[in-house]
Amino acid sequence: MAQIMFWEAVRRAHDEEMANDPMVICMGEDIGVAGGTYKATNGLYAKYGAERVIDTPISENGFTGLAVGASFLGVRPIVEIMSVNFAWLALDQLFNSAAKVRYMSGGQLTAPVVVRSPGGTAHMLGAQHSARMEKVFMGIAGLRVVTPSNPRQAYGLLKSAVRCNDPVFINEHELMYNMKGEVPDNEYFMPLEGSEVAREGRDVTLFGYNISVHWCMAAADILSKQFGIEAEVIDLYSLAPLDRAGIRKSVSKTHRAIIVEEAEAPVGVGSEVMAIINEECFFELDAAPVRVSAENVPIPYNHTLEKAVIPDANDVVAAVRKMFGK
């Protein structure tokens, strides 16, 4: 099993799926000749040509809609939206066309399109380049949302998303493309629904997804070494639908839950997971669930202010200590 970077894993999934099926194409801004802002399609233009690796104009709603229309006829487009902030412009085609067409056609049409986009707050990019939009996508019926936290997931989820007959939004992270991790050498597909136990523990469950899984893992390490608290970390790689069974199983084991999200709290992953805990396993709880989330402000440019908005492992540790009174 090789250690490769996140962007290499995404690129490998593209390459294999394009080699496997001539109807798989990819499109987006600067993904062809330039190889992609994060190199996720590096070298594919030379290998598959301009017909299948398409440099688009800066028309997010237009080219997303074009991909959706192509998918009606059996093409399997992988769309890269350079930054999730620009995906706001494509919501019309994603929500009104891709997510609803199967239902409103009574099952006649389907839009097997994949849209990948990096979100998250990187480094001093300011309010309009730092959005975390997963909360917006996960509330729309008919759209699947997955968010990989490591190269293996990035590879395995993209492979499955391309073959799945539903539209899938893949929420990536600007800071994670150079992250290294093990990816199987053989072809590998991850189920699009579910969650993974990233670390087993008995005292408290830390729910994370995408980058916040890493904060949870670092916090669990500190909690174990310094405070004797064994935290379980659940990686919610599928945000729509959320893994109700996985959430119930872990909370029923640890009886305590903390949800860690990079986005601001209102109407988000944390509020949704809390609602599921209430509905599924309220009487298993020994303490009220807690959210660790971003401050509810547009992201400031100044780095000190920016850091003050986004939580980290120390915030997770503090929340757990408060819960345990330690």
């Binding site: 080219f63 809609g65 074009l66 229309g69 192509a70 998918s71 019309d92 009104n96 066309s97």
Partner: peptide, 23 residues
Amino acid sequence: GGYALVGGPFPLAAGMAKAIQLK
């Protein structure tokens, strides 16, 4: 299909044309 967002079918039609071209 018929679509209810004014202008929504413009890119969908272009996409179908792209698929025809590819095939």
